[in-house]
Design a protein around this nucleic acid. Structure first.
Length: 214
DNA sequence: CACCAGGAATGTA
DNA sequence: TACATTCATGGT
């Protein structure tokens, strides 16, 4: 790999947090719903919304058939509920093409699925990649605000746009679902532990003294 | 009280 | 391509 910075960062994070193998959800569809609900929203608020779906969490058959007013009522704590209700309906309609069947989705090529998701209302690049990686175990790297900040700061000149940074990570790391999964998880875990807390970045494995690593 | 959180769509220049 | 605005709750 041309640039070893990423491997170095990964190692430090891994030593601190280990193999997380991530996404706090019980089912693939819960990942899909969570990926939409967490758009520009604190995860704690997403949890409240998920709890409102009931014991089994969000299910595609329910989201597809429930009335809009009831859906907005359920997801209200996650914010942007009018938009996100539309988005949930939309991404669920995409999943319905595959009969809500994970195996059927996984028969298709990653890039085809990514294209379909990106043309789905409410699904941008980060949400698409989160769904592909964490719901369907497909090897695509997720870039989020934490990742951008980490690069800008470290510094790792991975580019400016989403697609540039994504390409940089994928080109400078061995391709693999487990690695992509855990690397993004580690970045989020580190950001949540250290970002905007006092003392700033004490004990941060990236040793930068925040506003820095996260 | 201001600021922000695991974004995306839409509009302007 | 590059920004600005809108969407909205809840924690700090």
């Amino acid at each position: 790999m041309a640039d070893k910075k990423l491997a170095s960062i990964y190692k430090k994070l891994f030593c601190r947090y280990g193999d997380l193998q991530w996404w706090p959800a019980r089912t693939p569809y819960e990942v899909i719903a969570g990926a939409v609900l967490t758009q520009n929203t604190a995860w704690t608020n997403v949890e409240k919304a998920i709890i409102n779906f009931g014991e089994d969490g969000p299910e595609p058959e329910f989201v597809a058939s429930v009335r809009m007013s009831k859906l907005t009522d359920i997801i209200r704590p996650a914010g942007f509920f009018n938009q996100k209700a539309v988005y949930l309906k939309s991404v669920t309609k995409w999943f319905e093409r595959y009969d809500y069947d994970v195996r059927k989705v996984k028969r298709e090529p990653l890039e085809k699925l990514r294209g379909e998701l990106l043309s789905t209302k409410g699904v941008g690049p980060e949400t698409a990649d989160s769904i592909l990686l964490y719901a369907f175990d497909l090897p695509t790297f997720v870039i989020d605000a934490y990742t951008m900040r980490l690069c800008g700061r470290y510094p790792v000149d991975a580019g400016k746009t989403y697609s540039q940074v994504k390409a940089y990570f994928e080109d400078n790391l061995p391709k693999g679902v487990e690695l992509y999964n855990n690397f993004h998880a580690l970045i989020v875990a580190n950001a949540k532990e250290h970002c905007r807390k006092k003392p700033l970045c004490a004990g941060c494995p990236l040793e930068r003294g925040c506003k820095c690593c996260c």
